[in-house]
Nucleic acid binder design. Structure first.
Lengths: 214, 214
DNA sequence: TTCTGAATGAGGAAAGTCCCTCATTCCATA
DNA sequence: TATGGAATGAGGGACTTTCCTCATTCAGAA
């Protein structure tokens, strides 16, 4: 496949050199793509994208210094022409749904076959959007887990940061009793019986990512 | 550099295809190495290593179905000749120290420069052991965080699984009061003030890995 | 309009956490 | 041999979580 309006400038953002190399190989196998920079943390990714305004940015969802979503928002603001492709290791439905909702141009799991990635990247460079099959199959699964309301997610986030009911109540300007009710409802929805298990759930859902904590 | 007794058979184990590709490129850049298999989960890694008894196994620390450490133990048992190189995304001191204690042949972060990895792999194939500089610098840092005793880590593990003091006590055949003491000691050592924060710490330390929970 | 779901708030009881203190045993090592 | 660290166990008090019930408000959908 040859692309119409190349060469396209691309930036790769991932904190793992070995992953950057894998992505570099895929991008280089597409004609008309020139890699103009690599970032190994979130802030570097933001400044590199602002500076180079590349046609394509491959973005890791979990990086040090700035989270993938923060990078995404910044790059969209300062370089709206850049096609942003998220490559994530998290397979949680909620996490993937967040990226779809953010209207990312491409969404792939790190476990994706390089072949599918390459074809997806080409489609995206041609102006399309592409979400990998593995992501779609996760999103299409009817989850047995009832989904949480946005307020509940908000509370879950703060619980996971180590705040107790009273502190969360203050932060959200509601009563501690309300926070307690949200927590209780979540635990009953999710069929867990302790804060520890609730946090384990939050992690699995990618609501927390382990590099950001403490 | 050319290696004396090649060709060496190698197996790559990592759940992310893009990482496998990066490692494959590094291994292929070493003469005398032939990749005889790839595994995308822990059980596959164990059975592949048992079957092929490769000279070299690159092992991801966090994979579905069986954790890196379980794979390591099994492969050491069934194919003691295999040189095992762990490539991990976790940068927590405790996690890295665990691998050193397990006497792994090589230990690298995923953020390692491919060049250093290649040179390290060559040394290991020559019969040596190699721990990457970035790992050493983490291990050498005097951590302000006092380290936990093994019993405390054990308790932390069970807390993180969502068990309460009583359940943990039963599991370890000690009194609930003892468990409570261990938990209290840890929280004071680590200067955290809730189970939620304790779990956040456990995650950061790689004591839990998010794919195993719930 | 009625009904449902979401967010808010409260009361109350049982259980568990959190954080002191103190004591005993064992083991390593200075 | 003495000192200290680790594991064990206990008492007790303050606070928090956990889990019920119930009620109000509001928005959107049937």
């Amino acid at each position: 496949m040859s692309l119409p309006f190349g060469p396209y400038h691309a930036v790769i953002a991932d904190d793992h050199a070995v992953v950057r190399d894998g992505l570099r190989a895929i991008l280089e196998s597409i004609g008309e793509v020139e890699i103009v920079g690599e970032a190994e943390n979130g802030l570097e990714a933001i400044s590199l994208a602002k500076e180079k305004k590349p046609a394509l940015l491959t973005l890791d969802a979990a990086m040090p210094l700035a989270r993938g979503m923060e990078v995404f928002v910044e790059v969209r603001r300062w370089s709206p022409e850049t096609r942003i492709i998220v490559v994530t290791g998290f397979t949680a439905k909620g996490h993937l749904a967040d990226w779809i909702a953010a209207d990312v141009d491409g969404l792939f799991l790190k476990s994706c076959k390089p072949d599918e990635m390459r074809r997806g990247f080409e489609l995206i460079l041609n102006g399309g959007a592409y979400v990998s099959k593995s992501v779609l199959s996760i999103l299409e699964q009817e989850s047995k887990i009832p989904s949480l309301t946005s307020r509940e997610r908000q509370v879950l986030h703060l619980i996971a940061e180590g705040l107790n009911n009273g502190e969360i109540a203050e932060r959200l300007s509601v009563s501690a009793k309300t926070v307690d009710n949200h927590r209780t409802n979540m635990m009953s929805k999710l069929d867990v019986h302790s804060i520890a298990q609730l946090i384990a759930y939050a992690l699995k859902e990618g609501i927390l990512d382990q590099s950001q904590q403490l």
